[in-house]
Write a protein that binds this DNA or RNA. Sequence first.
DNA 1: CTAAATTAGGACAAACAACTCTTAAATAGA
DNA 2: TCTATTTAAGAGTTGTTTGTCCTAATTTAG
Lengths: 150, 150
Amino acid sequence: MLLSKSCVYGLRASLYLASKRDGEFYSLKEISKELGISFHFLTKILQQLTADGLMESYKGPNGGVRLSQKGKDATLFDLVVAIDGLGLFTQCALGLPGCGSQEPCPLHESWMNTRGSIEHMLKRTSLIGIAREGKEKHFRLSAEGKFSWQ
Amino acid sequence: MLLSKSCVYGLRASLYLASKRDGEFYSLKEISKELGISFHFLTKILQQLTADGLMESYKGPNGGVRLSQKGKDATLFDLVVAIDGLGLFTQCALGLPGCGSQEPCPLHESWMNTRGSIEHMLKRTSLIGIAREGKEKHFRLSAEGKFSWQ
DNA sequence: CTAAATTAGGACAAACAACTCTTAAATAGA
DNA sequence: TCTATTTAAGAGTTGTTTGTCCTAATTTAG
């Protein structure tokens, strides 16, 4: 698959937060339930995004997580890189180290283009953009339809 | 990563065979050594391609594998599907089951396009096409440069 | 101050992908 | 026929990803 499960869960949780009231904290319990993601697993992933500065967390009753300013400004590319790293956008399609225009593998040229189009797609898509569009078009964020845009 | 290691190894071995003398058998020992791939692991992968009809094998001294006619006609898409399956070309970027134009996830439209461009790239690239081009341009198929086009 | 709710963090378990090893079957050649 | 060479097939091992569980640490409310 293109993105790891961790990455997909992180993206969906981020889109969830982007769709909610700005500045408020939402508990992991609620997010995991509405999106149908394992609570403990999601905790790990969002801890990573919090450590990365894309989210802010608050402990205690009525605590939870929310997007930081950096998170609100983020594109999907920023989130993917935060979780899966840059590999998808830098590595050779055939896994050859040092593949480049100097010593290209047979797929180098084609893959550079395709890879670029993936990167471009993720970079031009912002969290808040999707949140805005999602409210009109009622995009899905969960398998069973538990989640709905406000 | 986009493709599994098994898939990448299968692709590289197929490109290896496409670059060699047509109709001759090449031993897995030789292929694995020149491409720097574990012998036993490569064996498994090429067994799969043989079972799929993309390669033919011959046991005993001077035995080995070669591309079948189906293999010679194959595009990279055929090989990827044989090893990694159709998932990359059918699944939702956010892993949501039943994602489609009826109930799209936020990435559906964009991902359809990107996914299509990956599919198109793999479908327009044939093994023999690369083998021909590789002899001119000396593409790399192995990490340490053990392999060279004839 | 105490209890409850929440995230943080580590250890653990299960599933899968990647790789290794051993034995069997087929074939060629002496 | 016998031996060496090669693919076939299955079992086993290792490592990574995914998922679970338990114990802190923090904060709110009573």
